[in-house]
Structures are given as structure tokens and as C-alpha cells.
């Protein structure tokens, strides 16, 4: 099996974020591997381990995991993290024309990179903690014309039958879905517990290859945006309101407050 995992470098969840010229200011904040993507890397490793003669991912397994990211030069740090968890190699699409790319462009670029790799499965996190759109995996499936299996809470792969089955919980209920390879899968954070890179993993990652590609290498050129930001205004931080200590009538005082404000 050849598995691709799409990952993204994002500002640390705790960092203060602001908009500059219509897009997120990424230069001024600490960046990390999107934590929801770690679950996708972990799930890819688990899938390979379950079907590897040695029980391990990596060269002896007969399978491979390729990380794919789109982002500025320093996004390679996020790739190193995934490689040290155990992925085999990485593709880094880096091009100044991609700064501020939206989901349509991102899915376009990722889909083109995936096309050239002959993959059986593509795994993604359910969303990036910065943009929070949750649409890129579905968009990639649409672009490739592959099966879409999103929000998976469990993934079972049958490589011999080139089949994959997932279970998921959505607004309508608990579903089981099935597809033939190739498929695009996104995994929810309840699916597993991502491993910490071991010392050995971190050392090995230093020797793994990251292939850097520009847009032209994928046969693409920059496209005009499909939408634009007119203005972005920071809202004054929500001022903390009243805080009262409960000394027996905290409950009824609360209800009086709510009645006064006419919310009940």
C-alpha cells in the first residue's frame, strides 16, 4: 500500500492570532504540526503496522507513508515531526505564489501532488486548527474523483481486496461506509493516541528525504483567488463581566440576573 498523509503547519493553538492584509499573520507566531493531523499520521502508521510482516512501518513493511504539505519553507519542521513519528518520506510544496492560499487552491495543489504519487489512500486530519474550514479532504476527493470517507472514528483496511471500511458519527447517526481504493479519509481525534517520536525516530527522520516542489513542478501556475477579504477587525476582547461568590443564593441571584437581562 502507498499511503499519503496531508499535513499542515499551523500557528500554535495558544498563540494570539491576527490578520494582516486579509490573511492570517503566520510570521509572528510559533508554528507547530496541526495537532489534528497527528492523528492521521498515527492512523497511517497503525494501518501499515497491521499489515507489515515485521509488525513495523518503514522499509521492511513493503508499504510506505508519504507526508504531503503545502506551506512556507519552515513548514519542513512540521514534516520532520511526522517523519520522526515514522512516516517514510515527504513532499513539500513551497512557492511564494501560494501565500494566503484558500481551501480551493490548497485542495487543487494537494490533489495534483497526490495524482503524481500513485497512492491507494490519502489520510487527513478533520480540520486545521487555524482555518477551521473542514472542507479540504472533501474537496480533494471531488478533485480526484476518489471515494470520500470523512470523519472516520475507525478505519479497517483490507489490502488484498483493496477495500477500506470506516465507521463515523455524524449529525444523522452512526454510519458504516465502505469503498474501494483509492480513497480520501479524514480521521477524528478520538480515533487513536498519537505516539511521541522516539529518540531513534528523531535521528532517523534527519536522514529521510523531503522533496521540495514549486508550483511549476506540478505543472501548475498561480490562479486568481475565488474570494477576497474586504476587511478584518479585531473585536475588543470580551470583557469579563460580573463575578460573584456563591454563599447560598448564587443560584437565585443568577436567575435574577438572567431575568433582568431578559434572556429568560
Amino acid at each position: 500500500m502507498k499511503i499519503a498523509v496531508c499535513v499542515k503547519q499551523v500557528p500554535d493553538s495558544w498563540a494570539e492570532k491576527k490578520m494582516v492584509n486579509g490573511s492570517l499573520d503566520r510570521a509572528g507566531v510559533d508554528a507547530v504540526l496541526n495537532d489534528l493531523d497527528e492523528y492521521a499520521v498515527e492512523e497511517a502508521l497503525k494501518i501499515i503496522e497491521a499489515h507489515s510482516p515485521t509488525g513495523e512501518a518503514g522499509e521492511g513493511s513493503g508499504h510506505s507513508i508519504t507526508l504531503i504539505t503545502m506551506g512556507p519553507d519552515r513548514a519542513s519542521e512540521a514534516l520532520r515531526k511526522g517523519l520522526s513519528m515514522g512516516a517514510d518520506s515527504a513532499i513539500h510544496i513551497s512557492d511564494s505564489a501560494l501565500a494566503g492560499a484558500d481551501s480551493l487552491l490548497t485542495s487543487h495543489v494537494l490533489a495534483e501532488a497526490i495524482k503524481s504519487g500513485n497512492f491507494d489512500l490519502v489520510l487527513c486530519g478533520t480540520e486545521s486548527t487555524d482555518a477551521r474550514m473542514s472542507v479540504v479532504p472533501a474537496m480533494i476527493a471531488e478533485r480526484l474523483g476518489w471515494a470520500q470517507l470523512t470523519f472516520a472514528g475507525s478505519v479497517v483496511v483490507d489490502p488484498a481486496a483493496t477495500k477500506v471500511e470506516i465507521s463515523r458519527v455524524t449529525e444523522i447517526g452512526a454510519e458504516k461506509m465502505q469503498a474501494q481504493f483509492p480513497a480520501v479519509i479524514s480521521v477524528v481525534e478520538k480515533i487513536n493516541e498519537p505516539r511521541y517520536p522516539s529518540f531513534k525516530g528523531i535521528m532517523a527522520a534527519k536522514k529521510k528525504s523531503i522533496e521540495v516542489k514549486a508550483l511549476a513542478d506540478l505543472g501548475l501556475s498561480a490562479t486568481p483567488a475565488w474570494s477576497n477579504v474586504k476587511d478584518a477587525t479585531p473585536r475588543p476582547a470580551r470583557a469579563a463581566g460580573l463575578k460573584v461568590e456563591d454563599s447560598g443564593n448564587g443560584g437565585s441571584d443568577l436567575v435574577n440576573y438572567l431575568a433582568e437581562k431578559r434572556v429568560i
Binding site: 492570532k17 491576527k18 490578520m19 486568481p224 483567488a225 474570494s227 474586504k230 478584518a232 477587525t233 479585531p234
Partner: peptide, 9 residues
């Protein structure tokens, strides 16, 4: 924390 106005082109 931020309010954004945007449009599709």
C-alpha cells in the same frame, strides 16, 4: 476575536 467581511468573486 476577529470579525471579517468577505465576498466571493
Amino acid at each position: 476575536s476577529t470579525t471579517v467581511h468577505s465576498q466571493v468573486t
